[in-house]
Amino acid sequence: MQVRVELFGRLASQSGARELTLEMPVGATLRDVAAALAERFPVLTWVPSICRPVRNLEYVSWDTPVTADDEVSFIPPVSGGV
């Protein structure tokens, strides 16, 4: 199945991509999508240790499964400023 991944901020500037489609096996989780993303862009291996996973515009857990045509993203800590 295909999953659409949206990239922003550091993920976009380091990979040079703002969106891509990944082919994932049925039953794959957000953790698996992050691993597939790091395989495509080895510069993004830091994503699982820094980011929060998002599925269809909502924060979810790394164990959440994805389904076909989901939109997925990984959110680094958001803007600083006190």
């Binding site: 901020g9 550091r10 500037s13 680094p76 800590p77 958001v78 400023g81």
Partner: peptide, 20 residues
């Protein structure tokens, strides 16, 4: 929690600000 980031640019470099 709102997914907006800032890239800070100065004379001789730049960084993404990710929280702290």
């Amino acid at each position: 929690r709102v997914p907006i980031w800032k890239r800070e640019v100065w004379q001789d470099g730049e960084v993404w600000i990710e929280g702290a």
